[in-house]
Design a protein around this nucleic acid. Structure first.
Lengths: 242, 242
DNA sequence: CGACAAGTTGATGTTACTCAAAAGTGGTGG
DNA sequence: CCACCACTTTTGAGTAACATCAACTTGTCG
């Protein structure tokens, strides 16, 4: 598996991810590479985008984790969707049609302006559109997860999902990755309190389902985890001919 | 006592809704009217669309309530999103990019094949695209609702949201409408058990927040309901010039 | 070293679930 | 019209899951 960090140069998860979604021309690949090089840094806990903002020309998350967030008046918050390296952030096929949500940096980030597809229907354009469709799929999963799963199921499910997404972006292995967010953020994502997240993780450790040291997770018993979460990968089409 | 049935001709909520989202030409209006007349019936609890199905050419929900549903192996289910009269069901701006979810009829339905926009960018096309974007906004709300709200908040929120959506479709008043789904379905939508939905509704009745007789709901204290749910309308743009 | 954030643990309270049964509702056929 | 059925709503009692409050520990960084 591609241990991206060993490769020369910067890791470019957005290229790995998008190349899997649309048949990119070499020009488009180049554009993505140069975009990646022009990434700017944003530090943890900063807002990347505010609810009230207009949809921008699109951005690519190069490194770090972010989240679409809803804040409530009484201080509660819910992470609606987790954004991982390689993800497309606020691109939209037409101006002004994006539902604006606040996006917050959960860790330090690097964000690059998205390379613009030169025409509708190009490989890059297809990849972007697919990317948006996939996000919608994850929203559906998120609803099912927090609506009907208990704490163990939610954690098993999200750990599997994150691993799968990181692997697709070539950023990690699916069963062994760096989890750079706090248990409190995990709670905000899963609709649980940080205390309960902690206890549940403890329990999963004693069950030898996972290992968690520092912020390195290892999924020790993927079979059982998938069983707990009734897990199945989110299916989506690969690149198609235009 | 649905007032709508007393009006001459068939009610056409999809026209009310879509006309608010895109500047429809008179030809497009006609097309929607004839589409509405060609509606077919589907009886309650039937699947309208299965997960595995290809994205179709699109359908309009003319009457009745449906839901995007996820079923779990152990019999639990979660209604991911509620589909109300006038809603666009499986239309997608490009073939095959829709995330397929099972759609189930919660009541008897009437469904019409969606009139196809004749070109990208037309008023009808814009209305459809906006409609899809709005659905995404409701998905975000749904996640916040079930992730961080307790039972009272969830019910207050959903009752307000449903009222608002029905009113926008010209199908009811926002504070006084027919609720044709069972409390069990409401539970599946909100991630609660039917028993707990019932108790919570009882409590809201004693608080004089709502009135619920048969399946007619009246929101008696909208101010307080909005306060409970920290409610604010989902903002979206009206028709725009092409 | 000290300060601060994150993780951990215990004790206790509350919300929501489970199981169970009764009562109301609507439709169907005799 | 009534009897019967299936479904929904309602209510009660007991339980489990999760939240809350609070303290203590660990780790990290200046």
């Amino acid at each position: 598996m591609p241990k991206v960090d060993d490769l020369p140069g910067e890791p470019q998860p957005h290229i790995n991810l998008l190349a899997g979604l649309g048949a990119l021309s070499s020009i488009e690949m180049k554009a993505l590479q140069t975009a990646g090089a022009r990434a700017r840094s944003i530090s943890a806990r900063r807002e990347v985008l505010h609810e009230s903002a207009q949809a921008g020309p699109g951005s690519l998350l190069i490194s770090g984790w972010a989240g679409r967030v809803r804040h409530f008046q009484d201080g509660r918050r819910q992470i609606l969707h987790l954004l991982l390296p390689g993800d497309l952030i606020d691109w939209c096929p037409w101006p002004d049609l994006l539902t604006p949500t606040t996006i917050t940096a959960l860790t330090d980030l690097k964000i690059a302006p998205a390379a613009q597809p030169d025409r509708i229907g190009s490989g890059l354009w297809q990849a972007y559109v697919q990317s948006a469709a996939i996000e919608q799929g994850y929203l559906f999963r998120q609803i099912g997860r927090i609506g009907r799963f208990d704490a163990h199921e939610r954690l098993a499910d999200i750990l599997l999902e994150i691993g799968e997404r990181l692997e697709r972006a070539g950023a990690s292995e699916a069963t062994h990755y760096h989890l750079p967010i706090t248990q409190e953020m995990l709670g905000d994502l899963l609709g649980l309190t940080p205390v309960h997240v902690n206890r549940t993780l403890q329990h999963m450790r004693t069950q030898k389902l996972i290992e968690l040291r520092g912020n390195l997770v290892r999924l020790l018993n993927v079979r059982e985890l998938k069983n707990i979460a009734q897990y199945q990968s989110l299916a989506f089409g690969g690149p198609r001919e235009v």
